[in-house]
Design a protein around this nucleic acid. Sequence first.
DNA 1: CGTATAATTGAAAATGAATTTCAATTTCAT
DNA 2: ATGAAATTGAAATTCATTTTCAATTATACG
Lengths: 164, 164
Amino acid sequence: MLQKRIDDHAPPTREAMREAEDIFYKHLKRVGLKHTDQRDAILHTFLETRDHLSTDELFRMVRKKDAKIGFTTVYRTLKLLAECGLASEVAFHDGVTRYEHQFNRRSHHHMVCTECNASVEFFSPEAGKLSEDIARKFRFEATRHTFQIYGICEDCRKMSRKPV
Amino acid sequence: MLQKRIDDHAPPTREAMREAEDIFYKHLKRVGLKHTDQRDAILHTFLETRDHLSTDELFRMVRKKDAKIGFTTVYRTLKLLAECGLASEVAFHDGVTRYEHQFNRRSHHHMVCTECNASVEFFSPEAGKLSEDIARKFRFEATRHTFQIYGICEDCRKMSRKPV
DNA sequence: CGTATAATTGAAAATGAATTTCAATTTCAT
DNA sequence: ATGAAATTGAAATTCATTTTCAATTATACG
């Protein structure tokens, strides 16, 4: 049945960091791109995050480390990270693309509060099984699936009952 | 278990049309808005569609019937239709919000081929149950959920084996 | 019926995220 | 070291979405 959430958002070990770097720079090599300090800084900042970050949010974090790195570079680097599987785009329903890191993380799903945009991750092996069953039925080769539940969280429900 | 897809995309009967009108105009009354020819025309055009339409696509269809109706009105009317449950937003992965009509349609999900973009709808009561279970667990009040499976369809797999 | 009032309309402007441009700079294979 | 090719980042652009506002229209009420 439904599993309790396991926190695998622990900060990356030095080992994991190196492994991610390796994946990233092998990818760059493969597509003929170059190793730069900016890309390094952005990768590191990204891996240290926990949440679902918009390009702008990551940009602000990166800027704290190195004020000379521009928004555009963060934007482009996130695309690269998504290309090599270290990040994945998450589209909630508020018109902003967010990224989460995918490295060493189990497949998970999202529950999003439509009031405050808070999101909770949950794990549901059932969703995976369902996905396989359905893909088989329609003769698809399933690569991934998204399962998102939208609703109103407990806090926001309390809020609306007792307005400030 | 998994159900075979039932085609409930048949053009709306006169009866269904009236029922939808009823829902729409009761909603307008409830929130203190007015009955206008434009809203009527947009509702009718929308109900006759089958696919997932962007605001702009619906606008183009509406304009064929009445060239004086503006984009903004279509945009606003779609929001109203979504408010009263006759339409629902579908987030595609191309940055454009689309709407599908929800009236008299069972809750369904999408399987999308990432090669040819073909989409198949499927029905899975399990996904609904899963959604309820998980919402309860996190004390959310669930309003809706999306379950999308991405993969490669049979045709595209054949294609890639025998390229043209 | 008018008439008053409040909502509607739609063109145009504004917004805002995503993307592209381009000149200056940096990387890296040789 | 050198030069070709990629990178950078500020600024400009794109494009869907949303807001503004003055003119128009629907509806309730006298």
